[in-house]
Nucleic acid binder design. Structure first.
Length: 447
RNA sequence: GGAGGGGUGCCCGAGCGGCCAAUGGGAGCAGACUGUAAAUCUGCCGGCUUAUGCCUACACAGGUUCGAAUCCUGUUCCCUCCA
C-alpha cells in the first residue's frame, strides 16, 4: 500500500476522528518519503493487567501506522498510571500501588507484542514512562515543564472543564497535573526518539495538543502532529465492549476466547460493517462484498463471522479463532461431534483446566461426575442452576410450565421434577441443556 | 453553621397506615415472527422441596399500632437555598 493509499484507507475506515493537520495524509507521505523516519507513539493506561476490547482501537490504529511504514512506540504509563487520567472520567481515580502497576505494565506489554505483531525493541519500541519520571525532581519539573503551561489554557481543556463544572466530584490537583505529564512524555519521546506524531482515542485530544504545544515552546519550528481515533459506540446505545458479564478482556484467563468470539458474532447488523472496518485488516473491497452479502443472504451471517474470526484471531491466534468459529455452529446446531472436536482444541474438555476461573459457570461447557446420574439421577433443575443457565428454581419452574424454554438435548423438560439418569445418557458422555434458543451448555460427564 | 427536600426492587420512578412483594417505564429472560438480525406482539420478571403457604425486602437502628414502605425518634448519606 502506498503512503497516499494508506491515508485514504484509514479515513475510509472511519478511523480518523481529529487531526492537527488538515493534510495529514500528505504530511505523513512526505515524512515517509524523505530520509527521515516518522516515529509515532500511543499511550496505554495500565489500569489492569490486561487490555479489554474497549481499548483495542488505538492498538489497531498503531498497527496500521506500523504497516504503513511508521515506527511505532507503545508507551505504557507506569508513571502516569499512578496519577490517573481525568479525560473522559467523571470521578476521581483510585491510585494503584507500585507493585500492581508493575504487574499491569507487564501484562499489557505482552498483549501489545501480540497485537502489534512484533517483538518489542525490534519491530516497535515499548517504553514505560516511569523510566523517565521515576526520579525526576519536582522542582526541576516545575521549572522545565510547568513554566510552559498556562493554567488558563489548562482550565479551558474539555477534560478539565467537565470536572470543574461537576460540583459533585471536582478534580484533585493530582489529576489536574496529568496533562503536564503526558505532554512531557511526548517531549521526551521527541527528544530521545524523534517522535513527531502522537495518536490516541478521541478523549486524548487535549493531552495530545498539550504535548504538541510544549514541544513547540521548547523546539521552535518543529512539525509535531496528532491524530485521534473515534469513540466506538453501538447503535443500540449499549457501551461497546461490555457484555452482561462485564468487560470483554483480551486476557483469556479473564474472558474466554469463545466469549470474545461470541460477542463479536452477536454484533448488530447496524454496527458490524463499521466494526469490521475499524478492528480488522480485511481490505475495504472485501468488506463491501460482506456488506452486500448481509443484504442478499443475511442468514449466513458472513459479516459477523468475519468480524468475530478476525478479531479473535488477532488476539488469541488463528488456531483458537478457528476453533471458536467451529464451536459456535456446533453449539447452535447441537452437533456433539463437532463440539467435542473444537472444544478439545480450546481446552474446554479437560475438567481440571477449567472450573477455577471466575466466569467458569458461564462457560458453554460444564463438567460433572458420572456418579451423579446413578440411582434416582440428577434433578435437571439443579444441573441447570449449577451451570449458570437458570438463576433459581423458581425460574426453572416458570420455564418448564407454559412455553417450555428449558430443554435437554432439544426435548422440552415437561416437569420440574424431571431427573437425568444414566439411562438417558446411554453410551454418550455429552448432553446438551439449554434455556431458549441462545443459552446453551454442553454437559460432559466424567466417570 | 442555618432552612428545606430526599434515600423504594437490576436502573428510573410511583405509592404515603391495611386491598403492597409494592402502579408504570427501561433493562433482562422466555414465546411468536425472523436471518442465531432489527422492529413488533405475548408472557415472566425477590427467594423458598411442589405452595388459597412461608421467608426476605421499600437507607440503618429503634418505637407507636391488631397491622407500617407509609406515623414517631435517633443515625447516616445525598440534593437545593442561605451564611
Amino acid at each position: 500500500m502506498t503512503e497516499a493509499a494508506f491515508w485514504s484507507d484509514l479515513t475510509d475506515r472511519g478511523m480518523v476522528q481529529q487531526t492537527t493537520n488538515e493534510t495529514m495524509g500528505d504530511w505523513i507521505a512526505s515524512q515517509l518519503g524523505s530520509n527521515d523516519e516518522l516515529t509515532c507513539y500511543c499511550g496505554f493506561d495500565p489500569t489492569a493487567d490486561s487490555l479489554h476490547i474497549g481499548s483495542l482501537l488505538p492498538v489497531v490504529g498503531l498497527r496500521r501506522l506500523k504497516n504503513a511504514g511508521l515506527k511505532p512506540i507503545a508507551l505504557v504509563g507506569g508513571a502516569t498510571g499512578m496519577i490517573g487520567d481525568p479525560s473522559g472520567k467523571t470521578t476521581e481515580r483510585t491510585l494503584l500501588d507500585a507493585d500492581a502497576l508493575d504487574a499491569n505494565v507487564k501484562g499489557i506489554g505482552g498483549q501489545l507484542e501480540t497485537l502489534l505483531e512484533g517483538t518489542a525493541g525490534q519491530d516497535f519500541l515499548m517504553v514505560n514512562n516511569y523510566d523517565w519520571f521515576g526520579d525526576i525532581r519536582f522542582v526541576d519539573f516545575l521549572r522545565d515543564v510547568g513554566k510552559h503551561f498556562s493554567v488558563n489554557m489548562m482550565v479551558a481543556k474539555e477534560s478539565v472543564r467537565a470536572r470543574l463544572e461537576d460540583r459533585d466530584h471536582g478534580i484533585s490537583y493530582t489529576e489536574f497535573s496529568y496533562m503536564l505529564l503526558q505532554a512531557y512524555d511526548f517531549l521526551h519521546l521527541f527528544e530521545t526518539h524523534g517522535c513527531r506524531l502522537q495518536v490516541g482515542g478521541s478523549d486524548q485530544w487535549g493531552n495530545i495538543t498539550a504535548g504538541i504545544d510544549l514541544i513547540h515552546r521548547k523546539h521552535h519550528g518543529e512539525e509535531i502532529e496528532g491524530i485521534t481515533f473515534p469513540l466506538i459506540t453501538t447503535s443500540s446505545g449499549k457501551k461497546f465492549g461490555k457484555s452482561e458479564k462485564g468487560n470483554i478482556w483480551l486476557d483469556r484467563k479473564r474472558t474466554h476466547p469463545y466469549f470474545m468470539y461470541k460477542y463479536f458474532f452477536d454484533t448488530d447488523d447496524a454496527d458490524v460493517v463499521r466494526f469490521l472496518k475499524c478492528f480488522t485488516f480485511v481490505p475495504l473491497e472485501e468488506i463491501g462484498g460482506l456488506a452486500t452479502s448481509m443484504e442478499t443472504e443475511p442468514h449466513l451471517r458472513a459479516t459477523q463471522k468475519a468480524l468475530a474470526r478476525q478479531v479473535t484471531g488477532m488476539v488469541h491466534g488463528a488456531e483458537t479463532a478457528e476453533a471458536c468459529a467451529g464451536l459456535e455452529p456446533a453449539m447452535h446446531h447441537d452437533d456433539v461431534e463437532a463440539f467435542e472436536k473444537h472444544a478439545e482444541t480450546l481446552g474446554l474438555l479437560d475438567p481440571s483446566s477449567i472450573g477455577s476461573e471466575e466466569s467458569s459457570t458461564d462457560l458453554p461447557v460444564v463438567h460433572r461426575p458420572l456418579s451423579e446420574l446413578q440411582g434416582e439421577g440428577l434433578l435437571a433443575a439443579d444441573l441447570a442452576i449449577a451451570c449458570g443457565l437458570f438463576k433459581s428454581k423458581g425460574e426453572v419452574r416458570r420455564e418448564v410450565g407454559s412455553n417450555s424454554g428449558f430443554r435437554i438435548d432439544g426435548k422440552p423438560v415437561e416437569s420440574f421434577d424431571y431427573r437425568i439418569t444414566s439411562q438417558l445418557l446411554g453410551s454418550r458422555r455429552v448432553l446438551q441443556i439449554r434455556k431458549g434458543k441462545k443459552n446453551k451448555r454442553m454437559v460432559c460427564f466424567h466417570g
